[in-house]
């Protein structure tokens, strides 16, 4: 397993363990200067090595169910037995699914509003925390971190109990509040990560050149972290559109969101319309991921 077939190590590098000092001092032994075989630099990693095969297998595992669903969205009949190509589920999705699109509109309204509020609050706070030192800093940091790690069920239930206790009727507003709350931490983290790379001497320069606090904020800081702000907002929109568990608890009559609607479709009789909806949603996500190409690494670091 561990025999390095491709590189065939030199004999002096075989089973005998080399003492480090031998290597550090220029080894000019009888065999001449120590040489690594040509393609051994950084080449422990082979193209068809174990880890690459695992990666491809896991990606296949991640995509296979989605591909099955998309494939069957073009099936003529209802079940999983292939009977012929048809676009009728798409016709049904776009023409005859009023309730679904109503739910989609609800989802969209909440996603846009909650992500705007979350982005503004989260970005401002991360600027405040990175830029200044003050007493309640630690508290705010903990409060912004916890919602990300608690199971969604707990957040949902605690919010349901809270809204009931203070007698706020459940509906669009409570969903908006809940989504803003779970979006804030991600914005905060993403913008903070960007601020970590920020060169604060630019701020000092702006100040020295006579910029006021406000000018510095709006003309220097915000423009330079704009990419992070935009990507965190798009991420918030995605997470808001996607959330089921928390929404499930804080929604009321008339405030069905798309995930809630899909849930009821799954629970009370599966309809192939979900298949066609899947393709539409996956295409949307793909476009989003492509437009966020530059930030995928930052997003990976903060999720």
């Amino acid at each position: 397993m561990d025999s390095n077939k491709k590189t065939a190590p030199p004999k002096q590098n075989g089973k005998k363990r080399l003492v480090p000092t031998q290597l550090v001092s220029p080894p000019t032994g009888p065999q001449g200067p120590y040489k690594l075989p040509k393609n051994q630099h950084f080449s422990d990693h082979r193209r068809f090595g174990f880890s690459n095969i695992m990666l491809v297998l896991v990606i296949v595992f991640l995509f296979a169910p989605l591909i099955v669903v998309i494939f069957y969205s073009f099936n003529e009949s209802k079940g999983m037995r292939w009977t012929g190509v048809s676009l009728k589920w798409y016709v049904q999705l776009f023409m005859e699914s009023e309730a679904l699109w109503k739910a989609f509109t609800n989802s969209f309204i909440i996603a846009i509003s909650s992500s705007i509020v979350a982005t503004v609050l989260g970005s401002l706070a991360s600027i405040g925390i990175k830029w200044y030192k003050f007493k309640s800093r630690t508290y705010i940091q903990i409060a912004s971190f916890l919602p990300m790690v608690l199971p969604e069920v707990i957040i949902g239930i605690s919010m349901l109990i809270f809204f009931t206790a203070v007698k706020i009727p459940l509906g669009m507003f409570t969903i908006f509040v809940a989504h803003t709350t779970f979006n804030i931490p991600f914005v905060f983290l993403l913008v903070s990560a960007r601020l970590d790379e920020f060169d604060f001497s630019i701020i000092e320069a702006a100040r020295d050149l006579g910029a006021t606090e406000r000018q510095t904020l709006f003309k220097v800081v915000i423009p330079s972290i704009m990419p992070a702000i935009v990507s965190s907002m798009l991420m918030s929109v995605t997470m808001s559109l996607e959330d089921f568990v928390i929404t499930f608890f804080v929604s009321g009559p008339g405030s069905t969101t798309l995930p809630l609607y899909v849930y009821s479709m799954i629970r009370y009789g599966v309809s192939p319309v979900i298949n066609s909806l899947s393709l539409v949603l996956i295409l949307g996500i793909m476009i989003l991921a492509l437009s966020l190409k530059r930030f995928l690494k930052t997003i990976a670091a903060s999720s």
Binding site: L62, F63, P65, L66, V68, V69, T238, L241, E242, F244, L258, P259, V262, Y263, I266, V270, I274, L277, S278, L281, I282, I285, L288, A289
Partner: peptide, 12 residues
């Protein structure tokens, strides 16, 4: 796949 609606994934 991570961003795709979780219910859609369960449904799949």
């Amino acid at each position: 796949p991570f961003w795709t609606n979780s219910l859609i994934r369960v449904y799949a």
